[in-house]
Design a binder for these strands. Structure first.
Lengths: 330, 330
DNA sequence: CTGTTAGCGCCTTCAG
DNA sequence: CTGAAGGCGCTAACAG
């Protein structure tokens, strides 16, 4: 591959001059510039960002750690990040943990070894090892999706959103409300959303009967399974069900339909996430829009700010959300 | 940031020795090794892949150029790639064109400047400038989704798939078949799928009446619009509609429902892509599964092979597909 | 088993 | 306006 040295030789100037032309820095005579440009053109020379980075200590690459690469949330979030990052000349280096907690740490190290300028960690859990690792890292990190102590974080307001959802159901007159959640190890999605549900019911003196609270994993089938169980296990059937993600809700919808129960007449249903799908299932699913793209771009902004100004170390940003009330709910 | 030099000094050995223990290459006395490891531990030293790359001429990074970052197809494809690439220690550097053809070329250059070991181009169009650029590139490139002359490519068998779809409709007894396509600039999705439709109708002496062929862009609303137009413009209403993507089909579904026409009784509907959504709309949408993940991992394999063996320069791989016949079709 | 030496491709003073 | 020199952090002969 042709290097700056080759160009210099061919253009009959020094490497310095070539560098000046390429980077438009310092004085170069029009004459010399023309010669250099010509050779660059001929040879198809492309300067090595790599070598440059070694000198300048900047790679213009941001590492993004994802729990799962192929989910609607991930792709929205990454899209938002890319929008912001590309504006500033950064590119995204992907790292996928596949929900494996060990890999989170590995990837943190790996990205640091590649000398990325910053890391955005789309997090699903918080544990001491991870926090330790982050604090020992020499690269700025921003967390997205979980509130990490003393790490700048962009979070969704999971507790409030879930409270609002539950209250909405109650306002609509529902007194028997079922819940489909996920493991509490996921503080945001698992713990906070369930806590909100429980708190609001309690605050309204509403009971939670046997079978009304089900735990699932992040996919449609599991939501379906959970709903079936709820139907079987509950002595009194809920008139409304709150599922912590749209996919879970859609799974539940399948189960409800299969049991020949009417939505929303007999059971109202609401999810969270505003997935594309939610708008096109029948009936249209009520849900909460979390604005994932924006969360992504905000995380990117936070990170860029941190890179440039070494900003304070623990900015927190809580995203807004919107309830989307649609046909699945009366 | 601590460097190999610091470690060497602190451990009282030479940089070479440090390098040897880090990379587990060559002989090092247990004694020296222990000392080095200890210092590494203490300092949290992480070798710079960057500097290493400069010497070894390998970055272990693959550039992936996407037409759109936030689509189901993209995320599936990237997922497949990552699965294969991560096995071999490669990471993905993302580049998003947002369907801007100029950016394809820019990104090709940019990725080369970053000295990625290879590039996978998820392509939506083919033009001379692009082909030129690719051929002048010094980095191995694999195309995915379009058959690029003398570039190793992984393609879907768009023509056959669309033929099969059309034939299926005819076998089911449909003689009046509408079509919702996209711009022919997209050779795979726009041109080939439409050609298949036209060819098969011709081969069966079936007419294409006014209004039966509509052109849309890649989103649900546009599919809806196109279907509305079809309904308005056609003197005889088709009994089946073939949309070239699921999202278009789902848009069409909306339009058909809105017009109070029964699916599939009055109009049968089929798409392509096996999107998640297709399974959960009502009625369940018939479609074609293209196995995007596999396409991604195959593209990755092709590229890795090319990197390692400098394999021949124009392997073509045509992906299999499966018709998924569901409730939207009788 | 270990250290010395010489770059990889680029930028950046510092002298002309 | 231009070039020489030095070094970013690391590996890879080549001698000990």
């Amino acid at each position: 591959m042709v290097t700056i040295k080759d160009i210099a030789k061919m253009a009959g100037v020094s490497r310095t001059t070539v560098s000046r032309v390429i980077n438009n820095s310092g004085y170069v005579s029009g004459e010399a510039r023309k010669r250099v440009l010509k050779v660059v053109e001929q040879t198809g020379y492309v300067p090595s960002e790599q070598a440059k980075s070694l000198r300048t200590k900047k790679t213009k690459v941001i590492g993004v750690i994802l729990p799962k690469i192929s989910t609607e949330t991930s792709s929205r979030v990454v899209n938002g990040m890319d929008e912001e990052l590309s504006k500033h000349g950064y590119q995204i280096l992907l790292a996928n943990t596949n929900l494996n907690e060990k890999k989170e740490i590995e990837h943190l190290r790996l990205l640091q070894s590649r000398r990325v300028d910053g890391i955005i960690l789309v997090a699903t859990n918080i544990n001491d090892k991870l926090m330790n690792e982050i604090h020992e890292l020499k690269v700025p990190v921003v967390a997205l999706g979980q509130d990490m102590p003393s790490v700048p974080s962009v979070v969704y307001d999971d507790y409030s959103a879930a409270c609002d959802v539950t209250r909405l159901l109650i306002e609509k007159g529902h007194h028997r409300i079922g819940f489909i959640g996920v493991s509490e190890k996921d503080r945001a999605v698992g713990y906070l959303r369930q806590k909100a549900y429980v708190d609001v019911l309690k605050e309204n003196d509403l009971p939670i009967e046997e079978g009304w609270v089900q735990q699932a994993v992040f996919n449609i089938d599991s939501g379906c399974e959970a709903m079936k169980n709820m139907l079987i296990q509950s002595k009194v059937r809920p008139t409304a069900v709150f599922a912590v993600t749209d996919r879970l809700a859609i799974g539940a919808m399948e189960a409800i339909k299969e049991a020949n129960i009417q939505i929303p007449k007999e059971i109202s249903l609401i999810g969270i996430g505003a997935s594309d799908m939610s708008m096109y299932v029948t009936p249209r699913l009520s849900t909460v829009d979390y604005e994932n793209e924006k969360a992504g771009s905000e995380a990117a902004k936070l990170l860029i700010n941190q890179i440039n100004n070494g900003g304070e170390n623990s900015r927190k940003l809580s995203m807004k959300y919107r309830l989307l009330i649609r046909d699945s709910l009366i």
